[in-house]
Amino acid sequence: MITLNVNGIQRSVKASPDTPLLYVLRNELGVMTPKFGCGMAQCGACSVLLGNQEIRACITPISALEGKEITTVEGLPARWARQKKLPPPTAGGALHPVQEAWIEEQVPQCGICQFGMMIKVTELLEANPKPTDADIKAALTTSGPSPHLCRCASYAAILDGARRAAELMRGDAS
């Protein structure tokens, strides 16, 4: 039996070790924001953070993840609260600044790719609080196993969301 650390909680899972993380999160642990898009690490809809780095849950077997810290969009508010030494988040309360920026800028259309987008932008902004547009574009296109794809083509809104999220995370938001 493998133990996974998902959003700060130790979870024992019954799935066979070769099972990709995506199926374990969604079917065994009830963590639903990572979405199935291609199953081949080519779209980014299933992205999660492994420590501080984005990975594609659809191709990563859980055997590679024992004891490592996995964060999904569900865990972003608590991650932010820990980093900023804030009280733990409450249901219906403030979300992670990247999520709040996504709502402020009304980024999503259908929205099914946006969980992966927010994971990628969180990875970027934790490492680079003041990214240029080129940095944001590089993060979402050339830095990972594939570009993060949005078939609604909300890319301009995603750029707005990332810029706004950077402001919110730096605390210099107007």
């Binding site: 639903m32 199935f36 999904t72 569900e74 996504w102 009304q106 929205g111 946006q114 969980f115």
Partner: peptide, 19 residues
């Protein structure tokens, strides 16, 4: 006007068909 269904989507509350 703001789209009222975005916050539950972004927070992860929305139940998508695949869920």
């Amino acid at each position: 006007i703001k789209n009222p269904i975005l916050r539950p989507k972004i927070s992860g509350e929305t139940v998508w068909v695949g869920d």
